[in-house]
């Protein structure tokens, strides 16, 4: 444990040193050093409107994932109860969602809705829905029919079996889908905001880009990376350890 922590510190230091080294060697105004970037990040975080933009991006990410996960979950679960949906998902819905590039969805939504909140939100929703469809699909395939049969001894209600047995069995799959989809959602939101919104972190990035303020671009990029790391390593690792791994044998 201590050893691992030390390795994390060493790896982080090497990263910063490498960045610093390359910036110094290139000696270019287009490659800010870590210090310039941190300075710019500090300026961003202490400016009056920065947290508003971070907040609005976070809201779009969460709203998009909420819509995408609800849609994906309903479509994924419907395959268990309705054979037609199993075929439709396999042959139309999933391939379509999976193959159309996110940027195409984003462009279409900009044309439809203009520079509104709904544009990046729908771009996120369409790009994360396949994660939920495929994970729930996989989960349902692995479903232990012995357990659902046992449950049917005690109830005739399909809803109760769904709520008490099937959904809990799918939680690890839904959790995995949520985790990977949030990672993707952040990236999609930034992209969507660059040309499809008048607020948010992506919008600020595009302003910094448009005015050639490279240290601002670096600063926002770093802020973005930090938020993602907090989301994934902080929140999700915590939930994983506390609720998902608890009932599973430990590997070590």
């Amino acid at each position: 444990m201590v050893k691992k922590a030390a390795q994390v510190v060493i790896a982080t230091i090497i990263f910063w040193l490498a960045w610093w080294g390359v910036a110094e060697i290139s000696n270019s105004a287009l490659f800010p050093t870590p210090w310039q970037t941190l300075d710019s990040l500090w300026g961003i975080l202490t400016s009056t409107n920065a947290w508003g933009h971070i907040g609005i991006s976070t809201y779009r990410v969460l709203a998009g994932v909420a819509i995408g996960s609800a849609f994906g979950a309903i479509v994924g679960l419907s395959t268990r109860y309705w054979t037609f949906m199993a075929v439709a998902v396999q042959s139309v819905i999933y391939p379509l969602l999976q193959s159309v590039p996110t940027i195409c969805w984003a462009l279409i939504f900009v044309l439809w809705f203009g520079l509104a909140d709904i544009t990046p939100i729908l771009a996120v929703a369409t790009s994360v829905a396949p994660f939920f469809i495929i994970n729930i699909w996989e989960g349902l395939k692995e479903l232990d029919s012995n357990l659902t049969e046992m449950a049917s001894v005690y109830t005739d209600s399909r809803w109760r079996v769904l709520g008490k047995v099937i959904m809990p069995m799918l939680y690890p799959y839904i959790f995995a889908a949520t985790r990977s989809s949030l990672m993707v959602a952040w990236k999609v939101v930034i992209l969507g905001e660059i040309f499809g919104a008048a607020s948010g972190m992506g919008y600020m990035l595009s302003i910094a880009y448009g005015s050639y303020r490279i240290e601002q671009v670096f600063g926002w990029t770093l802020a973005f990376a930090i938020i993602l790391i907090i989301f994934d390593y902080g929140i999700f690792s915590f939930i994983d350890r506390k609720y998902i791994r608890k009932w599973k044998p430990q590997e070590t």
């Binding site: 001894v153 005690y154 109830t155 008490k164 047995v165 809990p168 939680y171 599973k248």
Partner: peptide, 17 residues
């Protein structure tokens, strides 16, 4: 149910019913 404790498993019939 692997995610339920012994007690959780034993009360399952009541929860289902």
């Amino acid at each position: 149910l692997p995610w339920r404790t012994t007690t959780g498993n034993v009360v399952l019939p009541f929860e289902l019913a």
